[in-house]
């Protein structure tokens, strides 16, 4: 049997509020197979974003193991982790987090430039991606001149330029109105279907979550199958973050 695509074992993580330790992840165990489109729901402050950051190697857990195609990610050194983020993972955050000094096309191209790909070819590819998300006419605009939905689509294009294996989206529609948000969701589903990119979408939008094939719920510091556990006894672990 081959190793699972992503396997998270016994991950513990705390954060501190006014000097008090809050154990937000308490032994998280998750397996995600290649090509899955997973939603992660949970109450505010239940640790959804923390889990996503740990899974995306942006945050160091206190303990635990994460294996990506059988390789232990937490054992990598700084350069290897950076390369892992660069080539294997695409992030989309609640805010678009585009770099304000660069045009939309340059923002999309940035991960490839960080990978030291050739400049001209990269910019061409960035334009193709912008065309795919329907923003080619905005390619030379700076983020300050883009609307929220446009920015989020640029951010999605940026997450895709390195053709990552795993797309991690942290409430990508949290700041958008429902109709704009639905556009982003449609794009996510399309990406998953057409490019075969495994995606984990954190959301507290139950409607969106129900539209995705697999649903996980973070409750009590642990990840459970959302369809198996009733949401009623899910008490928030800590104060709202």
């Amino acid at each position: 049997m081959t190793a699972p695509f992503l396997e998270v074992v016994d991950v513990y993580k705390s954060y501190f509020l006014n000097g008090k330790r809050i154990d937000v992840l308490r032994g998280v165990n998750v397996r995600i197979e290649q090509g899955e489109l997973v939603s992660l729901i949970g109450a505010s402050g239940s640790g959804k974003s923390t889990f996503l950051h740990v899974a995306g190697t942006l945050d160091a857990p206190a303990a635990g193991v994460m294996r990506f195609k059988g390789q232990s990610v937490f054992d990598l050194n700084d350069a290897q982790v950076a390369e892992f983020r660069n080539t294997k993972i695409g992030f989309v955050f609640q805010s678009h987090f585009l770099l304000p000094e660069f045009t939309a096309a340059e923002n999309v191209a940035m991960p490839a430039l960080i990978n030291r790909r050739e400049r001209r070819a990269t910019m061409t590819r960035a334009r193709e991606l912008l065309e795919r998300v329907g923003l080619l006419h905005r390619a030379e605009h700076k983020p300050g001149e883009l609307s929220g939905g446009e920015s989020q689509r640029v951010a999605l294009a940026r997450a895709l330029i390195m053709q990552p294996a795993l797309l991690l989206a942290d409430e990508p529609t949290g700041n958008l109105d429902p109709s704009t948000g639905e556009g982003i969701h449609a794009l996510l589903r399309e990406v998953n279907r057409e490019l075969g990119i495994t995606a984990v979408v954190v959301t507290h939008n139950e409607v969106l979550a129900r539209s995705l094939p697999r649903r996980l719920r973070l409750v009590g510091g642990q990840v459970v199958d959302a369809d198996a556990a009733p949401p009623a006894d899910a008490a928030p672990v800590g104060a709202p973050g």
Partner: peptide, 16 residues
């Protein structure tokens, strides 16, 4: 600070 965090998320190592 925000941009640094984003750049790190995009795969820039500390040395970068």
């Amino acid at each position: 600070r925000k941009e640094i965090a984003v750049l790190k998320a995009l795969g820039v190592p500390d040395g970068g």
